[in-house]
Nucleic acid binder design. Structure first.
Length: 233
DNA sequence: GCGACAG
DNA sequence: ATCTTGTCGC
């Protein structure tokens, strides 16, 4: 099935907190997206995955490093931090970037590339959270999402390109990791090429729509969440 | 005209 | 994302 998704800026405007300067935020997104670099990835052995879970206004961010060859977990970290900004489509970075950076910095080892739960440049301003993180940290990053925020593609077709409805530019690609599994949306975050991003994502999608590093970060964040929320376990 | 919208 | 029971399927 072909889907086309665009963003209603008025909806975004209606959800933004009072006092938040939306046009300034858009200007920042446009400026930082200009710093995204697409190039082949050289080192790719150690791959980190980042994900965030919530308990009320407390974010539980997890980072896990997986060896892409042996699939062994090499390092992991979890942090807790208060978040103030709400979830608003196209402004996810303003809510989750800091927690992700904190978890990433808590790692003892340095990965070669980072996979993030969210889009890279497949974003109306070409700065999804994976691209934002990549430019901010100067790291190669890949955006991996379970649903489409912005763009046009064929969700049933493996390798279907995600195109910008406005310009026709390719923003990413759909991959299908197995029968019975939904689509996974891949896009460049920073310092990687789309073919390299797609190749690495495919290699690490083991019986799940999410690649191993992100899947493990997701599980770690939810496990850690239980330790501060004992009433539901 | 109203509504949809990464996590 | 999170709120939530039992239930169908591999």
């Amino acid at each position: 099935m072909r889907i086309v998704r665009t963003i209603n800026e008025n909806y975004v405007k209606s959800r933004v907190p009072r006092g938040f300067n939306l046009s300034a935020a858009r200007a920042v997104q446009r400026r930082l997206s200009g710093l995204v670099v697409e190039k082949p990835l050289s080192e790719r052995r150690l791959v980190a995955g980042l994900d965030v879970a919530y308990v009320g206004n407390t974010a539980v961010a997890a980072a896990v490093i997986v060896d892409s060859i042996s699939k062994a977990v090499m390092d992991s970290a979890v942090i807790y931090t208060r978040v103030d900004f709400p979830y608003i489509p196209t402004l996810l970075s303003f809510r989750e970037l800091k927690p992700m950076v904190m978890a990433y910095k808590s790692l003892e080892r340095a990965p070669h590339v980072v996979m993030i739960d969210g889009h890279g440049i497949a974003h109306p301003y070409r700065l999804g959270i994976a691209a934002h993180f990549g430019v901010t940290m100067g790291m190669p990053t890949i955006g991996v999402a379970k649903s489409l925020l912005y763009g046009e593609c064929d969700v049933d077709v493996d390798a279907s390109p995600i195109l910008d409805p406005a310009t026709g530019d390719q923003l990413g690609a759909v991959i299908r990791c197995g029968a019975g599994l939904g689509p996974t949306f891949i896009s460049v975050g920073n310092l990687i090429s789309l073919p390299d991003a797609v190749r690495l994502a495919r290699e690490l999608c083991v019986s799940s729509v999410m690649p191993l590093p992100i899947l493990m970060a997701h599980r770690l964040a939810n496990k850690a969440k239980k330790s501060i929320k004992p009433q539901s376990g």
